[in-house]
């Protein structure tokens, strides 16, 4: 574990050096993230200028949900996503050779090679958005937030990490997976709105096969005091299952790796 923390420290340092090297990309990414966040915020304001609530969610609640969604999305994009997204390219151009030959967990090495520091500022904005939503609306008692929110955020993050890994592991099987990723990205985008509005079947799907509710709504619900103990216990189980499946699928797929001549 200590060794992996040391490796992580080196890889974070290298990513930071890179971020400083490509300043324009750094600023563009921050601007891009703020524009999108602002756009969604405006959409919520417009929606609630016509109604008081949507499927039991008030404007303040929805701002919290948007904040949580954006927080998890930026946390993922800022940490391991960029590294994992390189996987199909690493397979296609044979660069996996050196990764597989090294005495370190290859999944870790792939994921940890790219951090996006530009997202740190956006994460701060996300936290601000969550705080704003909680201030103008309802909020769970502090002690329940402290007990439940970290469990649900970590579970949501692990599920998202596993899903991203699962999809990009398809790179071992198919040359291009852009469409699959675009499909998931689109689905994930829906989760910034309460999935209750889509009816029972979609809700069930979002609790199991594509657990968007568990990833994004549960942490928001924990902040708003709208979560049951069963749901709090369910999230880590889903996270563990997804993590195990992603891990197994990667190990299985590596056997197919044929490198490049």
């Amino acid at each position: 574990m200590r060794r992996y923390l040391k490796l992580l420290k080196i890889l974070v340092r290298v990513s930071f050096i890179r971020a400083l090297m490509f300043r324009a990309a750094f600023y563009m990414d921050i601007a891009y993230s703020f524009i999108w966040l602002g756009l969604f915020f405006i959409i919520i304001q417009i929606l609630f200028s016509h109604t008081e609530e949507i499927a039991g969610w008030s404007r303040a609640n929805l701002i919290v949900l948007l904040g949580v969604w954006s927080f998890l999305d930026d946390l993922g994009a800022g940490t391991f996503w960029d590294g994992i997204k390189r996987l199909p390219d690493l397979v296609a151009d044979g660069a996996m050779d050196f990764i597989l030959a090294r005495p370190v967990d290859s999944q870790f090495l792939i994921a940890a090679e790219r951090f996006r520091f530009s997202r740190v500022l956006v994460i701060l904005a996300d936290v601000g958005l969550i705080a704003y939503g909680l201030t103008i609306g309802e909020m769970a008692p502090w002690h329940t937030i402290i007990l439940r929110f970290p469990v649900l955020v970590v579970s949501g993050y692990i599920i998202a990490l596993s899903v991203v890994y699962l999809l990009h592991t398809l790179g071992f099987w198919f040359l291009r997976i852009n469409n699959v990723w675009a499909l998931y990205d689109g689905l994930e985008g829906i989760a910034k709105y309460p999935l209750d509005v889509f009816g029972r079947h979609i809700k069930l799907l979002s609790l199991t096969i594509v657990p968007l509710t568990v990833m994004f709504m549960f942490p928001a619900q924990a902040l708003l005091g709208r979560i049951t103990t069963l749901e709090v216990l369910y999230a880590p189980v889903v996270a563990a299952i997804f993590f195990a499946v992603a891990r197994w699928f990667y190990q299985y797929s590596v056997r197919r790796y044929s490198s490049v001549a």
């Binding site: 490796l7 080196i10 290298v14 050096i17 090297m21 050196f98 090294r102 005495p103």
Partner: peptide, 22 residues
């Protein structure tokens, strides 16, 4: 093929390998 980071000095890649191989 190269295992060194393309956009960084070779020493940075050596430091990573140092930790990888302990």
């Amino acid at each position: 093929k190269n295992q060194l980071w393309w956009d960084l000095p070779a020493m940075d890649s050596f430091i990573l390998n140092k930790e990888i191989y302990e």
